[in-house]
Amino acid sequence: MGKKDSTYEAYAKERRENRRKSRRDFFHRLAKNKGAVVGMVMIIILILVAIFADVIAPWDSVVKQNALIRLQAPSAEHWFGTDTYGRDVFARVIHGSRISLLIGVGSAAFCLIVGGFFGAATAYFGGRFDDIVMRFMDMVMAIPATLLALSIVAALGTNMVNLVLAISISYTPRFVRLVRSAVLPQVGMDYVEAAKAAGSGNLRIIFKDIIPNAIGPIIVETTQSLSNMILEASGLSYIGMGVQPPNPEWGAMLSEAREVMRTYPYLITIPGIFIIITALSFNLFGDGLRDAIDPRLKT
């Protein structure tokens, strides 16, 4: 282990030092970007709300229907009012955050794992494997994301797992492409050759050195896609193809409010604002990340 790895270790060490320095600069730049900070704070709040949803508002109020108190405007008792079935809108919105985040995180995780794997593999191994996979990805990308998601949901049925699956599959090709283009320039580099010559296994090289170096744009894309994924999920739920009632998904809530929106506009403004804030936070944070990683791209 000792002598054989020495050149590789030397290279790797230098790269790690450089990375440490650029990481410090990066955090510095990120902290200065107001939009990114706001976005990050919002995201943290959102995550906390999602985790502690049960504490903030018991699940009971989410599903318990009470025709007597239906369609009440916001008041001291029901901060956001009640909906067409008499359920507490505040509780529903709070629990809705959990659903949106779960869908977002789930889809992002899937895309990162599957997309990341194929992206890195095609870049690293190249050849026919690369050709075949990329051709396939092109074809999948030729189908508009919403359409693809709809087809999958149509075939497999409308529930949350299928929704996550559908959205993930629609966004995966993008990730494969991205990871591939981020990894590709790394593959030709000296330190990889040195590692191979020293007998390092392929997997080790991929995980220990290639991926950390390529991770910047990948993280940016993930955060920005998260926003779209959440929007996509609520859109599909809105037309009834996503999360099913009585689950309090924000998009579904908007759909339910449609009939009565003229007289009870709060039923659409409130969940809508939550969707917007969520999507905006991820967008701002993603933009800030991108600017911090490469200040030259700043507009």
Partner: peptide, 21 residues
């Protein structure tokens, strides 16, 4: 930036509310 984060169907309903209804 705002419009990119706005879900189109929500925005549609707002527009409907104002201009149509």
């Amino acid at each position: 930036m705002f419009f990119i984060a706005v879900p189109p169907f929500w925005y549609a309903m707002i527009l409907m509310l104002i201009f149509a209804l």
